[in-house]
């Protein structure tokens, strides 16, 4: 069985983003970019499936700009076998919408025929939380989102999902689209020898047009702005003073 892992290149989660003065978006020039943290967890899970003998090949795929090669090399260094880069734009500021990403991934699935797709629950830049679910719709496959435990049993996957009320366990038919949550595993670091080896692993490049997908956005970004900042508050010197202040403002 092949495992397909879509990985997104995003601003590193430690970077404080800045909105561009003209309101056209967020400044992405010269900032540190990394693999979306949820996708590291997905790559890790895919490698574990292979190590457990439940998968034969792990394929990482990224949609976006040429620079996504770096993100794919990281996945290869962690242990993915090969990578596919689908170039959909030349401008790092053009983010491709989940619907278009899902259509591209569907085209890749039609060629590769994986038994399972492991995606992240959400990308930490746009926080859409949508791509996996959309891909499931386009393939007509089952979907298992926000997953913190995954077991494959024959033609089914049994998953535990992090939901508002606690945890939910469901069984889905394979092939399936899984989106992973933070507590599924702890991703490994790539070792130096593996980083070297990853440079020789195959990385195919295609374009969205070759796959026949129109990536024209459906949502037009009218503007991007900074949220209103909170006014700085005060430090209180003691618990007594805190209680007094809270009473003053009617909070307790």
């Amino acid at each position: 069985m092949k495992v397909l892992v879509p990985v997104k290149r995003v601003i590193d989660y430690n970077v404080k983003v800045r909105v561009k003065a003209d309101g056209s978006g967020v400044d992405l020039a010269n900032v540190k970019m990394s693999m979306n943290p949820f996708d590291e967890i997905a790559v890790e899970q895919a490698i574990r499936l292979k190590e457990a003998g439940q998968a034969d090949e792990v394929i990482a795929v990224s949609v976006g700009v040429k620079q996504n090669q770096e993100t794919l090399r990281t996945a290869l260094a962690m242990g993915a076998d090969r990578a596919i880069l689908v170039i959909a734009t030349e401008d790092v500021h053009t983010d491709i919408e989940p619907l278009a990403v899902a259509k591209i991934l569907k085209a890749v699935i039609d060629e590769e025929k994986p038994g399972i797709v492991l995606a992240g629950k959400q990308a930490i830049d746009n926080d859409m939380n949508a791509t996996g679910q959309m891909l499931a719709a386009l393939t007509g496959w089952s979907q298992a989102t926000f997953v913190s435990e995954l077991t494959i049993e024959g033609d089914n996957a049994v998953v535990t999902r992090e939901v508002d009320g606690g945890l939910q366990t469901i069984k889905v038919t394979m092939p399936t689209i899984v989106t992973v949550d933070l507590r599924l595993n702890e991703p490994r670091y790539a070792s130096l020898p593996n980083i070297m080896k990853a440079k020789k692993k195959p990385l195919d490049e295609k374009s969205a047009a070759e796959l026949g997908v129109d990536v024209t956005p459906r949502l037009k970004i009218a503007s991007t702005s900074e949220p209103e900042a909170r006014l700085a508050g005060i430090k209180v010197g003691s618990v007594e003073e805190l209680v007094e202040k809270l009473k003053e403002v009617g909070a307790v």
Partner: peptide, 12 residues
């Protein structure tokens, strides 16, 4: 977007 560090206005 970006963990609430920016607010985007989108037109569908």
């Amino acid at each position: 977007i970006y963990a609430g560090n920016a607010i985007q206005t989108v037109k569908s």
